[in-house]
Design a protein around this nucleic acid. Sequence first.
RNA 1: GGCCCUGUAGUCCAACGGCUAAGAUAUCUCGUUUACACCGAGAAGACCGAGGUUCAACUCCUCGCAGGGCCACCA
Length: 794
Amino acid sequence: MEEQNPYKEIEEECKNLWEKEKIYKFNVKTKKKIYSVDTPPPTVSGKMHIGHACSYSQQDFMIRFKRMRGYEVFYPFGTDDNGLPTERLVEKTNNIQSKNFSRAEFIKICMDFLKKELPNFVQDWKNIGISCDWDMTYSTIDENSRRISQWSFLDLYKKGRIYRKDAPAMWCPECRTGVAQVEVQDKEIDSYFNDILFECENEKIKIATTRPELLAACVAVFYHPEDERYKKFKGKKAKVPLFNFEVPILEDKRVDRKKGTGIVMCCTFGDQTDMEWQKAYNLPIKTAIDAEGKMTEIARKYQNLSLKDARKSIIEDLKKNNLLVSQTPIKHFVNVHERCGTPIEFVKSKQWFVKYLDLKENLLKWGKELNWYPEFMRHRYENWVNGLQWDWLISNQRYFGVPFPVWYCKECGNPIFADEKQLPVDPLKDKPLIKSCPKCNCKEFIPETDVLNTWFTSSMSPLLATVSIKDEEVKKRLFPMSLRPQAHEIISFWLFNTLLKSRLHFEKNPWEDVAISGFVTLKGEKMAKSKGNIVSPQEVMAKYGADAIRYWAASSKLGEDFDYQEKDIITGKKFVNKILNASKFTFMNLKDYKNQKPKEIKELDKLILEKLDKIIISSTENFEKYEYSRVKNEIDNFFWRDFCDNYLEIVKKRIYQNRGDEKISAQYTLYQLLFNIIKLFAPFTPFVTEKIYQDYFRENEKEKSIHLSKWPEKITEIKNEKERDKDVNKWESFLELIKMIRQEKSNSKKPMNSEIKLSIPEEQYNLFKDMLDDLKDVSNAVEIKKGIFKVEFI
RNA sequence: GGCCCUGUAGUCCAACGGCUAAGAUAUCUCGUUUACACCGAGAAGACCGAGGUUCAACUCCUCGCAGGGCCACCA
């Protein structure tokens, strides 16, 4: 790294202070109103990425505001370290395969791995200044999470929402597990349309397929009822090449006449349409693929081959027998498992499901009861609900995860459920509390070896997060939670499932507000490891500091994707530098200031204080609506333009020249301005504002951290809003006048401090009559006359 | 195919239906003044297209174009 973060020391100092003084601790005895947050637990798979840095910063702005606003903030931190992602990470890192270990061994390897890696993983979130209570952490694989997930399973079973079914389900041959609808993605892959010859009464029928390996499972051939080409085959039978068995030729409107040869083979579990046909025409069920992703015995000589190998060798055999007319290369979309990219198969297997297809209407209604920020994100949720086609498959045939609290009777297969008292339970190790099967009295039980899908657990996050709260009364006060912040790509996973669970278990929504963040792109494209366009937040922080990256994150609105540009981070770094310098300079001018109020606040000072009030009022309103980027924008302008470029320039002479009460008025104003500015910035750049607070303000102010101080409230007394607007306008036109003078100097290529004689219109002269000395100071005018605007150089 | 989001200076990104369309960065000119050259002052530079609503449209509506996303289909 060429450059070093110049603010590393400040950041370390602040982190130590926050940790030592427990600044972000949730006080269980609080009398204040609680603001509770269902923090997203990041998946433990590698390191924090820039999207995390951005979205966690954004939630932290809103939460820090609430804390300063007087709420007792409940902001825990969890890690999602349960299930497939962690299992795959451990497999990759240790170069091992879970199937070569016993379940207990592999779980131990995973837990050891987590123990070693978690502190490092979490450190990134601490480094970027996330104000969680770091004593309130949870993991989705810890004992509490296992207990709650298993309880959830038992409770849903009691409520009639859980069932087990032996049916075709989406299956990943690579991970060797059933997968849920939500875990399936589109992927474009290269393939071939193979035109294969079927035979019907000595006539050849050319059928196009991308899946020749499924020939053995062919149960029918379909064409469109209005397709003249094929009507002649109605009611006849077709002979399947290589396998030489006959299947009926049927009509169905679902056939696309334009696709391939317009006639299609139907294999039991080929795709969803195939399954619909199987049901509609009561076709036989032929299973060609087993749970290992290999061909079954119906594939005859191809049995035990992998799908890929079977396809290859069937194609070869078709060629040999002149049954393959042609191969056309195509690109098409197939469903793949989102975790590994392997095409999904439909495989008949016993799986556990949560029944929810009957709840679509309710789910839509419950979604409407949430406050969505931004509002339009609700459509994504509704879109998902409307498109649901499968009940929720919750069983995974994996090792690592939360086990089902279930055994089966050896004799009759009756499921035996664990007793709530014995949770968390591991059926591989533990025994059910009942001694014999209530149905057949058998005393032997077979443990369920599947584990619960990771979303089944993370959907309990509002409960998981409260693990450290022992007091039931306090726990109750946390629900429903105030806020669920999260990214939009998991609306259909985490948000949907959490809402569903909360309604099914408790009949109420889990939160009031949901805030959905966008993601970070690079040159308009989503960052992805596979594309190699990753920006590492660790490197960015090492170069420019945590405040810089946060300042950058604050410039994007909720729900809006935005483009990463290094120069924008540099802008953040410049800000940190600027506010440190401005503070240093301010306090150089406050050396002899004893915190007294002036007898009279000078006109100019009153105007800028009123402008500050205006900023405070609108910032507060915007923050309440989670519009943090507007807040940042406004205070940013006020800080640079009003405070640094103008007010500081105007009053430095007044202070330097020691003009009695007028000097005190300036000093009082400087103190107020800077103090409120750093408070307004505190949610955004917590490190530098803390540093300034500790160095300059702490001795006068009572709170031990700026982050515990009160959010600013207006300081000036005015009769009404109109009066303030008038005064603020006066301030703006004063700045306008200064700008004109500077313009003159610049156009005349004179230095800014060159002495001048100034003429201004009588109207302005009168308007600014109490500020003429300030005007002289800032413009270095020796005299100000009434007249047409004119700058004369001396 | 259904739905959603976004189109503003070279680039990133603001703007209750209403004054000269804001800021950052890059460019050009000037300037070291009792914090800051990681600076200051100034200049130049933009509303995707076509209709419509309105006294008034960057803003609202319709259509189109372009980019992105979610979902469905995918023999």
